[in-house]
Each structure stands twice: as structure tokens, then as C-alpha cells.
Amino acid sequence: MEVRTIKVFTTVDNINLHTQVVDMSMTYGQQFGPTYLDGADVTKIKPHNSHEGKTFYVLPNDDTLRVEAFEYYHTTDPSFLGRYMSALNHTKKWKYPQVNGLTSIKWADNNCYLATALLTLQQIELKFNPPALQDAYYRARAGEAANFCALILAYCNKTVGELGDVRETMSYLFQHANLDSCKRVLNVVCKTCGQQQTTLKGVEAVMYMGTLSYEQFKKGVQIPCTCGKQATKYLVQQESPFVMMSAPPAQYELKHGTFTCASEYTGNYQCGHYKHITSKETLYCIDGALLTKSSEYKGPITDVFYKENSYTTTIK
């Protein structure tokens, strides 16, 4: 009895394709271990004539594949690729409408935090270190965002349907971005203890939790000093293409032309909904596939993004 075979390709990165001759009487799992086709788990399936010449994702289970996976995804987590594939199996079914010149995501599976993050990423200057993220990001900007969303979920250790947080998501993504040249110098002034300067680099240099107003941050924000008295913390120097200011959701007025974009969060910790506000020729609110415009805006804002380049204080 002759062994019926077909020729397929296996890959971990969709760049390096490895030619395989597979036995049609055995499952993919018996031949390769966990195997995925377009995100779908085909591990328990036997090869079919229609699979001839198709590319299958496999887990990096030998040295060659491990090197290829690390170079593309910059992670050695053995569960990463499987999590990416199972997320992709959902995100490829989502709709990605162009809204006001940006790629958004039609609401499904509690994905409003991903839509808000995706919209924000198209408006701030950011370059990702893992080629996987950078490639998928370019495709997302062009309207094909399924891979990018699935990668975000995998890097953030999230599953489809789980509630997510924009600030946490951005923080994970910033860790995989090139923020080497970003720098922030802060000064804390206390009447009792004097003053202390701190220099922050990388992710810490672009994120701040405690106030939404970048102007206020430049002037000074009140913080408790270690001595128990009130101290003032203010920005001395900022070198970065953008800054992200966050605070627990509270009524906040966004003035046209003073910011790049913002995240609105309605609801409580267990259950809520994100919308995205962007400042173009007027203010726009993007909620999944829905767009509304207004000249002014007041609502429960939790993150505001500002364009920056270089700032030095005039406070002496």
C-alpha cells in the first residue's frame, strides 16, 4: 500500500517557510505537534488534498525554529505562539472599519479597549522592536488589523473576551517599542525636605499616572512627601515624541487643539466601556464603527496623549 502524501510549508514567522512532505494517514499533531492554519487549530486533523502548498504555523520545537521565533517575536515564552494563534482565530472574524481616516474595530468580545489602543497607536510616533509587531502594525494602518490585535493580546497575556485596560495595554506595548531616546527629568520640591531631581528613561519617561493635564504637570502637581507634608512635583525636561497622561476616570474637559487623542471610560472596574476622542479640525468621538463630532467635550476621561518633541522648564 502506497503512502499518500502532500507537500506543505511549516513556519513560526510566515517569513521562513520549511518544506514538509506530510503523510495523509496521520494527523498534523502526530507529525508536527500543535499546528495552526489561519489561526485555526488543526492539530487533530489529517492532511487533505486542499492543504497542498498551504502554510501551517507550528510551535518552535527545534533550534532553527526557536531562533526564527525569537528573532521575529522577541520572546522565548513557549506558550506565546499558541496564544497568538488562538487569538487570531477570533480577531480574523472582527470587522476593521476605516473611521475618520483611522483603522478602528467594530465592537465584539469586549474589544473596546483594543480599538482605543489601536486608534491611539496610529496617532503617536512609535516604532516597535519585534519585527512581528512592526509588520502587523503597518498592515493594521492599511486596514488589516487582525494579526496586530492578536499579537497585542498575546504580548499582554490576554484572551479574547476578557476586559482590558488601555493604560495597561499601552504599557505592555511600550515595553516592546523603541523608547531608548526618551528621557524625563522631574523635580520634587518640599518646604521641609528641599528639592530632589529624578531622571527617568524609556517607558517611565512617557507615562504618568495622577493627572490628565500635561500643562498642569509642567506647572506642578501636589504629591505627598515622605515627611508627610505636601510637596510639588513638576516637569523639568521632556525628550520624547509623545507623552501619555493618565488618571482614574473623572469628568474632564478636553479643549480642541490642546491634545492629540484621549480615552474615555464609562462604567466601573468590573464592567465598563471605552471610547476614543481625537482632536482634528474639530473633536471626534470614535466608538467602534461609530463616529460623532463636537466642538467641545466633557466626560469621564482616563488617558490623554500629547505630541511632544523637546521641553525644558522655565521655572527657576
Rank of each mutant, 00 (worst) to 15 (best):
A87S: 09
D165H: 14
Q31H: 05
L290A: 11
H276N: 06
P248N: 07
Q197M: 12
V58Y: 03
D303V: 09
H74D: 07
T302N: 04
T10F: 12
C193E: 02
G33T: 01
V203F: 12
Y252L: 09
M24L: 11
Y214A: 07
P131M: 02
M244I: 03
A140Q: 00
A289M: 10
P300E: 15
S295D: 13
T282I: 10
A40Y: 12
Y96K: 01
V58W: 00
D303S: 06
G194P: 06
D303Q: 04
G228C: 03
Y155D: 01
Y252R: 06
I152V: 10
G299E: 04
C261E: 07
T169I: 15
T11K: 02
S213D: 15
L283R: 05
G164M: 07
N147A: 12
I223M: 11
A69M: 15
V99C: 08
H74W: 05
K201H: 13
C271S: 04
M244A: 03
P78F: 08
G288D: 05
K201T: 13
E168P: 05
K255R: 12
Y284Q: 01
S171A: 14
N111Q: 01
H273R: 15
Q216A: 10
D135K: 09
Q31N: 14
T169H: 00
L173D: 01
D135G: 05
G143P: 00
F56I: 05
V3Y: 13
N178A: 13
Y28V: 01
E71D: 12
V243G: 06
Q134H: 14
Q123E: 10
T226C: 15
N157K: 14
E296V: 13
V189K: 09
I152W: 02
N147Q: 15
T314I: 14
G220M: 02
Q230W: 10
T35G: 02
I124P: 02
V21I: 11
R167K: 06
N129F: 06
N187E: 15
I315Y: 11
Y84C: 00
K54F: 12
Y214S: 05
T75D: 05
S171Q: 14
C193T: 03
E281T: 03
D38N: 11
K298T: 14
G33V: 01
S246T: 08
S50L: 10
F9L: 11
G164S: 08
G39F: 07
L163W: 14
A132C: 08
Q134M: 03
T116H: 07
T266F: 05
K293Q: 09
L133A: 02
V42N: 04
P60Y: 05
T312W: 09
G228T: 04
R184A: 15
E281Q: 05
T282G: 11
Q196N: 10
Q98M: 13
R167Y: 09
P241Q: 10
Q238I: 02
L59P: 08
Y208C: 11
T198N: 09
D165T: 15
D77I: 01
G194Y: 04
A142P: 01
V188D: 06
P34R: 07
H276R: 04
Q195K: 12
A231F: 02
A140R: 01
H90V: 11
G220D: 04
V58K: 05
D23Y: 10
K183I: 09
P78H: 14
F128D: 01
Q222V: 12
A289I: 03
L81Y: 15
P224T: 11
R167C: 10
V206I: 12
A108P: 05
P47E: 00
C271Y: 10
H18S: 08
F148C: 04
Q175E: 08
D63V: 08
L254S: 02
I286S: 04
D287E: 10
K106Q: 15
N110F: 01
L126W: 03
T120R: 05
C112I: 01
Y138G: 15
Q270H: 13
A231Q: 07
K95L: 06
T5M: 07
C182W: 00
E296Y: 15
D77K: 04
A231H: 06
N309M: 12
D109T: 03
S50K: 14
F56M: 09
E71V: 11
T226N: 12
Y234L: 08
V189Y: 09
K233F: 05
K280Y: 05
P130D: 01
Q196P: 03
V22T: 11
L283M: 08
E296N: 10
K95M: 11
F148G: 00
N16W: 06
P130F: 00
V3S: 12
A247P: 04
A115C: 08
R139G: 07
G288S: 03
S79C: 02
T211G: 02
T169L: 12
M24S: 13
Q175N: 04
E162F: 03
F259K: 02
A247H: 06
L163I: 09
K218T: 07
H176V: 03
I124M: 06
G257P: 04
N268S: 09
M24G: 09
M1S: 04
N49P: 13
K158L: 06
R167N: 12
T302H: 06
A289V: 07
E71K: 07
K191N: 12
G29V: 02
P300R: 15
K275Y: 02
K183H: 13
V189P: 02
E52H: 10
Q134S: 11
T159W: 08
S240V: 03
A136Y: 07
C149G: 03
P300K: 14
Y269C: 14
M207F: 07
P241N: 07
M245V: 12
F128A: 00
A154F: 02
